[in-house]
Structures are given as C-alpha cells and as structure tokens.
Simulated assay, not measured.
Amino acid sequence: MSLSFALLQFNPSSVVVMDIEGRIRSLNANAERLLSTTEANAIGKSYTDVFGPSLSQRVFSLVLKAGQTGAVKAIEATLPGGRRAKLRATAGPVRADDGNVSGIVFVADEDTSSPRLEQLAEREARLRDALKRYLGDTVADMVDARPSFVDVGGQTQIVSVLHADVRGYTQLAEDLAPEKVAALLLRYHGVASKALRESGAVIDRFAGDAILALWNAPEPQTDHARMALEGALALQHAARQAGTELGYGVGVHTGEAMVGNLGSSEYQNFTAIGDTVNVAARLQGHAKAGEVICSAAALAAAGEGVRATALGPLELKGRRAPIEAYRVDAHS
C-alpha cells in the first residue's frame, strides 16, 4: 500500500508505519495520543519499546496473520501509559513502487462502547485468538470441538516431523542488541511459520531460534510425508524472500512417535516425543543454511516426484545406527 504524509496525519485512526526491522518510521497524531509518545521520540525505535510489552504481543500476532485475511481484529491490551484499552486493529505490508515489501503498517481504533454482551463476545474472541496463537489453528479447533481432547495422555502413531534451526544464531545474538535479534526472528519466524501452516503443519513449538512442526497429528493426513517435504522447501523459499541475514538448516523424518497432551494435570502441551523427533533434530544439525535434509524413510513415504541427492549414511549424535539421508532439492 502507498501512504502519503497527508493521509497518515489526517487519518482518523491511529496509524503507525514501521520498517521491515520493526523500527518506527512515522505515526500520526492519534497514534501519538494512543501510545503516549511523540513522533520525534518514537522514530527509529523498535516497536516493542514504543508499543510496550502488552500491545507489542498483540501487534506481533497481527503481523504474523497479515496477508491471510486482512480482517480487523478486536484486541485488548495495556497501553504504554498504563491504561487498559480495547482496540479494533489490523496490520499489513507496506509496499514500495516496485511491489516489494518495505515495511509494516498498524492501524487501530479504540472501542469506547461497553455493553456487557459485547464485552463477553470480545473476551471470548480474545481467548480464542490466544488459544490459536499458543496452540495453532488445528489444535485450538480440536479443543473447541472436543473438550475431552485436553485430557493428559497420548498415543503412538506415524508422524512426519520437521526441525528447523537458524544458522549462526549464537554469533548473531552476541553481536546484535536484543531488540534487533528479536526483530530479525520476528521477520523470519513469521514467514517460516506461515509457510509451514499453509503446508498443513501443526507448529509444535518455537524454542528461541528453532521451530518444531508436525504432520499427521492431531488429525490424520494421508500424504503427510510429502506435505512435510513440501513445507520444508516452502520454508526455505520464504526465508530467502525475507532477506539474507538469516538462514535455516532443516531436517525431516517420518516414523513412530508418542503424540498427545504431555505434561501434568496442571500444565501440558500438545507435542510429540520419541526417536523420530530426535532424528529430525539430528538431521537438521547436518544441514547448511538453506538446505533440507531428510531421512530415507521420509523420502520413501513421500512417494515419487521429489528430487533429492543421496548423502549416504550419516552418523547422528546419540544414535548407535547411522541414518540414510538425502538432501531435498525440489518437488513436482
């Protein structure tokens, strides 16, 4: 989208424009009042500093979903001035004349109405949105449809597991300020998770610079191995489109794992454990930035149409037997 200075300043909504690193480029007078700041004080700062922790989390969620629906979302957050507010907000890409993404725009209107039914509806929407952010759409929908789904326990089943890890992250974290590292991970994890979700993955968890994703759980997916390899390639393509600062090494394996709600009666999360998960992580350890390495089991389960280069048997840390591995080059 193209935003002129006049449109920004006279827009009745609160409008904030950020660059692709999450730094503030401009904001209008309404945004100054909402965020208890001035444009002169905000420009160049990370959005996490200007928005504060509560609103930043909501904005992060909106940015991750940008481009999926473009819908306005009802959110509630504590503003930098300490006031709790309900907002109707959206976020989307700012595009340069050549069509490339040059930043992000956040637009919000404060909702000052307070009927009880509206409050309850917004609270339900907020809780459901939080559930999806923490669990992903698939698991959240299962919890909503089947209350018994939250019972502790799991089952052994065949799954395809992807483990992705940012190369050079330790050095990066040492060299850059924490907010710059967070902004980079926001950008790369955002496009990576979007690519994985679009390939049918359930994102098990983010662990710093790492991503763990599953296919064929909690709902069955007949072609899960192929979907996992396609998702891995889509992740790499999305990461290349996002920039050149970071790159992922990716490992994929197909096999049996214990899948379900694991933990305790007080705290649990939907996850997978077992040798299959470990093998995916160890294969990832052999992948260079931009590479996808899969096991022979994953490649065989994916069927024809996957172009891969044989790497021979790889010795994986912690395993007695080597794993026959392939570098995945493309799929048809």
Rank of each mutant, 00 (worst) to 15 (best):
Y134D: 08
S102Q: 11
N30C: 08
E118C: 00
S61P: 00
R123L: 11
S148M: 05
D151I: 00
K73W: 03
V17Q: 13
A29R: 15
S102A: 10
R83Y: 04
E110C: 00
V72E: 11
S26H: 14
L79R: 08
L35Y: 15
K86N: 06
S148F: 01
L35G: 10
V143N: 08
P115Q: 11
F149Q: 10
V63Q: 06
I75T: 06
N28F: 12
I104N: 02
S114E: 12
V17W: 14
L27V: 12
E21G: 12
A77R: 09
R83W: 02
S148Y: 00
R23K: 15
E124C: 01
L135M: 15
L55I: 02
V152N: 07
L120I: 14
R88A: 13
N30M: 10
V150H: 04
D137I: 08
M142A: 14
S102C: 06
L117I: 09
K73M: 06
L135F: 14
A125D: 10
A125R: 11
K73A: 12
T38A: 05
V59S: 03
G67S: 05
N41S: 13
D98P: 07
T69V: 02
G44L: 07
T38L: 09
V50N: 05
I75C: 04
E76L: 01
T48H: 09
N41H: 12
F106E: 01
